[in-house]
Design a protein around this nucleic acid. Structure first.
Length: 456
DNA sequence: CTAGGGTTAG
């Protein structure tokens, strides 16, 4: 009895240390406990697994398992749920499937949360049909779904392009015995926004208010971002004003959304004001916030200030990500230092970033604008992946350089393959042909553009 | 344990 009580005390101690990311101290407390005859139990180890997943790495967390075995304690469903969730968070998706398998092999029966996490994993892998299968198994089997099950489903359907199916599931919530939570509304509002359905999103916001919930900062940030994205700046700024009026406090997400929108529209003064406000508010900057600020400095041409922030990131023990590097590369390009940008891209490749399409786009565009169009086309040909940005930029620049045949050829290949290309770039080709006396070519291209519009 | 932020073309 006394021993069990002591273990509970030990766990209370360990959980608070773990939550505060004081893992060394937590380990020391456990060792002290053992010395005093208070043995850690499965709950103690589960807390460690959870904390190591969050603050260290999946591997370190996984290394708790042999320690448990040594102590004669078997991992349970909570241990595995933590590991699987940790793997999903760190995007080690195949790893999380392996862990699920391992749990089954050890004869540990999964619970609702195991299935929730598994669904989440499948959605992140872009396998909605697999996730849906897990969901169906839950509904018809003896596993009871919880509110989060539906949130994960609705979110996953939205993220995988099944917004209407998500809406249907939302409308069927009550039949399953659940009422929508604020988080459910936020998921749907975001899904509608990302699908470009701003009006439907605003209707959903209204429905949220009518349901008796008060929208939270996440709701507003989501809708505001959507307005900015669809170039409804006035509407976006109105939401910003409404948030301020109603006394919502801004967190890093809110600030970043607004600053980025200001930067994108060239409102540097407003962006800088907001940045200062963010710092005054004492917001702890994370890597996304740093990226926002670095981008602001780059757009102002203050490269030195941007580099100072890179130093600060390092000092604080944060890690630059693909955004940081891309923003710097684009900043160097726009500052006219394309060679420097290329060097940075090489570094990016060396340290193992494989998604650098955006950086290549910036560099190709920069070479075009610098008049080095032949070299730009060489880089363009060598690119393994290209997207709408790549083609829109190159086609536009080819037109400016009066290389209309090449531009038209690329535009046609886009029309055939269904790659979207900016209207302005399309118009540049047609107008270019027309005004250089190739009226017949222009007409032919125009009709092909129209055909493509119908068939896609 | 499930929701919102950060990069490129015009």
């Amino acid at each position: 009895m006394f021993g069990r009580l002591s273990t509970r005390l030990l766990n209370i101690c360990v959980v608070s240390l773990c939550k505060a990311n004081r893992l060394e101290k937590a380990e020391a407390v456990i060792i002290d406990g053992i010395r005093l005859g208070v043995l850690p139990d499965v709950v103690t180890y589960n807390m460690l697994v959870d904390a190591y997943c969050e603050f260290e790495s999946l591997d370190v967390a996984y290394s708790i398992l042999p320690r448990m075995k040594e102590a004669g304690i078997s991992p349970d469903v909570v241990t595995y749920n933590s590991l699987i969730a940790g793997a999903v968070r760190k995007c080690s998706l195949s790893r999380s499937l392996d862990l699920f398998e391992e749990m089954l092999q050890k004869g540990i029966p999964p619970d609702t949360w195991s299935y929730n996490t598994l669904m989440h994993c499948f959605f992140k892998l872009g396998k909605p049909e697999e996730a849906n299968r897990v969901f169906r198994d839950m509904i018809v089997g003896d596993m009871t779904p919880c509110a989060a099950t539906f949130n994960i489903m609705i979110n996953g359907l939205c993220k995988n392009g099944y917004t209407d199916n998500a809406l249907m599931l939302f409308r069927n919530l009550e039949r399953h015995g659940f009422v929508p939570e604020i988080i459910t509304y936020n998921i749907l509002i975001n899904g509608l926004c990302k699908a470009g359905r701003l009006q439907a999103a605003r209707r959903m916001l209204k429905e949220l208010e009518e349901s008796g919930h008060a929208p939270n900062a996440i709701t507003y940030t989501t809708v505001m971002k959507c307005c900015f994205r669809s170039r409804q700046y006035k509407q976006g700024l109105e939401i910003l004003a409404e948030m301020k009026r109603k006394g919502y406090t801004f967190d890093g997400f809110g600030y970043c959304t607004v600053i980025a929108a200001f930067v994108k529209t060239g409102r540097i003064k407003e962006a800088t004001d907001f940045m200062e406000q963010m710092v005054q508010d004492g917001i702890q900057l994370d890597i996304a916030a740093y990226n926002t600020l670095i981008n602001l400095y780059c757009k102002e041409g203050k490269l030195e200030a941007a580099y100072l922030l890179l130093d600060e990131i390092e000092r604080r023990g944060l890690e630059c990500d693909v955004y940081t590097h891309t923003i710097m590369i684009d900043g160097l390009c726009k500052a006219g230092n394309i060679k420097g940008a290329q060097r940075h891209l090489e570094i990016m490749n060396m340290i193992g970033f494989d998604s650098n399409l955006v950086a290549y786009n910036s560099i190709v565009d920069a070479f075009c604008k610098d008049g080095e169009i032949d070299y730009a086309m060489k880089v363009f040909e060598a690119m393994e992946i290209k997207d709408s940005f790549t083609y829109s930029s190159v086609v536009h620049n080819l037109c400016k350089a009066r290389r209309l045949r090449h531009a038209s050829k690329l535009l046609l290949s886009c029309l055939r393959s269904g790659v979207k290309i900016l209207k302005s770039a399309q118009r540049a080709v047609v107008d270019g042909l027309r005004y250089s006396g190739q009226r017949r070519e222009a007409k032919k291209l125009q009709s092909k553009i129209r055909m493509a519009k119908i068939s896609h």
